[in-house]
Structure formats: structure tokens, C-alpha cells
Design a binder for these strands. Structure first.
Lengths: 142, 142
DNA sequence: GCTTGACCTGGAGCCCACTCCAGGTGGCAT
DNA sequence: ATGCCACCTGGAGTGGGCTCCAGGTCAAGC
């Protein structure tokens, strides 16, 4: 079973050395094994757990909730039901996030198209300097 | 053209009163009109702009970049090209966000299914207390 | 005429999630 | 033996984005 130095773990997981130490301090990682010189040696399992952490972080789970999940995992098999509940709730939140992002993205794209229209209008034979309609459109759309 | 009190704007846009004042302070909103008592009266246009701000915020645009966009909008028509560039870049980032979220979500769902499997195994005729395979699965999956 | 409530200001404070720092250790390469 | 590098520690600092507070002003209702 292979073993990783802090540098390797940082490389693989994308967490900085400081962040790894921070996560251990706050208990998101259980105390990492040390070599004779007191330097950390991460196990395969540690790295796997960090993958899970990455996943939850990147989907917006706050650290406090990850700590709750961590506690469940440490609690052994009888907490599996609760873990499912927690992850399902999070999954729903992610779903929500995605659909809100999609909506907002659509609005942004409409805005882009609107700007495009403005550009081509501007490139046209120029509908005379005092153009109330054009102004209104600009005002209504920033 | 209707006019809104701070309370109404907060209600409609979902920004808190403090946040509205904060946005005005930092220049994300241009100075809002006041009534004789010095209280803010938001125009339809202000509210529309706040809608845009909401959109950009909710898709993760940092305030610093919104300020750049704001400056462009204030710069008038000749900045429309740049606005398009900025929004298109942001649009691509949103797309990226969504696809990363989807990937992470898939991983979370796999984990949920894995936990489900563990549960039904546990409910089974119980494959004896000392179960190395079961342990390994648990270890490999938290 | 007094309370209530919505609003005002400048400035301090807060929360989250890191990130940085000074000062130190141990091991390997030249 | 002398660099140098990767790592260690405890604790302070940072950045982003608000959020709260004290103390004050008006306007309307009882």
C-alpha cells in the first residue's frame, strides 16, 4: 500500500500544503501518520478521503457540514443511513445550484445577444442622432 | 415611471438594505436619488440594474469584475464590444462551473448508491462478523 | 405630543476559508 | 561540512463580502 508525502498529496488533490495542515487541525482529516522525523506520510485512504472532501467542497458544502459528515464516517456502519440522508440533501442542493446557474446563464446570453443587436444597429445606415427608441433600449438594458 | 423605497427594492431583489447601501458605497450602483428627507428612492432602471447584478453575483462573478462591467456600462455605446467580450468570458466560466458541478454530482450519487448497497448487504443474512471483504469496501469508500 | 417604524450615516465587526510567517529540524547531494 | 530543500509548529494575517451598531432624522398614526 503506497504512501505519499505532503507534496505529492498537494500535487494530486490540488489542496495546498497549508490547506492540508489546516484540514488536519480542524479535524476534517484524522491525524496523519508521521515518519521518524515527524513529517506526514499520507496513506492511500487519506488521499481517497481527500478526494471526497474535494468533491463536497467543490459543490459548495461548507466546512461545518463536512465536519458533520466526517463525524458520521467515523461513527461506523450504524451511521450509513444518516450519511445517505446528508448526501442526498446535498445532492438536491447541487441540483438546485445547477438549475439556477442555467437560468442565470440564459439571462446572460440574452444580454449578450441584445448587445450584439445594438452593435449591428449601430453599424447600420445610422438612424439619425436623436433616436428616442434607441435610447430607451439602451436604458432598459444598460 | 415608478419609484421604489429601499424596503421594496430589498424585497424585490433579495438584497438586504445593508447590501444595497454597500453596493452604492463601492460604486456598483451609481448614487441613488433621494427624497427631501434624504431617503433613497430607486428608479425602475436601478432595479433593473440590480437584476443584472443579481445575475452576475449568483453566477459567481466577483465584485471587482462587476465593477469593471459597471464602468463599461457607464462608458456608453463605444464599450459595447468590450461588454460582450466580458460577458462571453463569464458565460464560458459559468458553463465550466456547471459541467464541473455535474461531474462532482455524479460522484456523490455513486457514493450514495454505494452506501445503499452497504445497507442492503447489512440487512442480508449477515455474512459473519469477521468479514475482510466488507471491511475493505468500507475502507475504500469511507 | 408621543410612539413607532422606516430610513439615514460612518465606521467597526464578523465569518469563512484559507494563507503566510518566523524560526526550526532532518536528510540528501556536492 | 555545507547547502539546500521539503517539511515542521503555533499563531497571526488576509480577502471577500457583507452585517451590525450607535445615534440620529423625518412622517404618520393614536
Amino acid at each position: 500500500m503506497s504512501i505519499y508525502t505532503p507534496g505529492q498529496v498537494a500535487e494530486e488533490t490540488g489542496f495546498s500544503l497549508d490547506t492540508l495542515r489546516y484540514y488536519e487541525r480542524i479535524g476534517l482529516l484524522e491525524p496523519i501518520e508521521r515518519n521518524s522525523a515527524g513529517q506526514r506520510r499520507f496513506s492511500e485512504e487519506d488521499v481517497g478521503w481527500l478526494g471526497m472532501v474535494r468533491c463536497l467542497r467543490d459543490t459548495g458544502m461548507p466546512i461545518a457540514e463536512m465536519l458533520r459528515f466526517t463525524a458520521l464516517v467515523r461513527g461506523g456502519r450504524q451511521t450509513i443511513g444518516e450519511r445517505i440522508t446528508l448526501l442526498e440533501a446535498h445532492d438536491r442542493e447541487v441540483e438546485e445550484q445547477i438549475s439556477r446557474l442555467r437560468e442565470r446563464q440564459a439571462a446572460i446570453q440574452r444580454k449578450i445577444h441584445h448587445y450584439r443587436d445594438l452593435l449591428t444597429e449601430q453599424a447600420d445606415p445610422a438612424p439619425c442622432a436623436e433616436d428616442p427608441a434607441g435610447r430607451a433600449a439602451e436604458a432598459a438594458s444598460n
